[in-house]
Design a protein around this nucleic acid. Structure first.
Lengths: 121, 121
DNA sequence: CTGAATCCTTTTGGATACTG
DNA sequence: CAGTATCCAAAAGGATTCAG
């Protein structure tokens, strides 16, 4: 992708989804609005820095909505925008694929670790 | 994801799809079998090193099939396996999403460049 | 033509400590 | 609780060069 045109819609989607935790964030927010702390626990072992960074990008991209209640102690809620929900839906088939072939994917992961592959989680 | 279990199928799918050009590779091979050179031109400006690397991973993962004709000059063809085709299909909705909202995504890309965001391809 | 090998830069994510 | 700041390690990708 060079100057604003993607070779296929897939690139466009993956451009927005770029970032290790973004799909997971979308996934968890698809179910319900979450407070910052809840979201971090739901996502797993992600550092504050990275989570905040990706939340900011998703917010700037119009995928999620951030509401700061301006209270002490702080309370901030995150939720999907209408646009974000459309992306969440487009993600579902991929989610189903992963679920359906989870056994195969697990095998792939094991194989990668044996062969010392990169990206072997 | 810690030890072999994914929080949702989405993680599993993205684990397999990890790599900048893999979705694009799947996309191009979904239409037809390609020779190495054709594929590289189709994918865009990707270096040999990276393309080969990702092709090998996809092959090791059972997503694509590699046929070396053992000729001089060399001739190698790549195609999707049955398993690879299932993933290709799961990718379609995301592709459609990107196509449908291409205008919005373009706007997002422009905005990222202005703000000096990361991943602003 | 297809690919291997080497070196290098950029990008990305993580650990830790600190603040209102 | 919800972040911010700084420093750091690793990885992923890219350029170049060489080979059968």
């Amino acid at each position: 992708m060079k100057n604003g045109t993607f070779t296929c819609g897939l690139d466009a989607a993956l451009f927005v989804l770029g970032g290790k935790w973004k799909p997971l964030i979308l996934f968890h927010l698809a179910h319900e609005t979450r407070r910052y702390g809840e979201l971090r626990r739901a996502v797993g072992n992600v550092s504050d820095k990275v989570l905040i960074q990706q939340l900011k990008e998703l917010e700037a991209d119009g995928m999620i909505h951030r509401v700061d209640f301006g209270e002490i102690p702080p309370k901030v809620e995150y939720s999907l925008t209408a646009f974000g929900r459309t992306l969440g839906k487009a993600l579902l088939p991929l989610c189903k694929w992963g679920t359906k072939y989870s056994t195969k994917v697990d095998a792939i992961m094991v194989r990668r670790k044996d062969h010392g592959h990169p990206r072997a989680a």
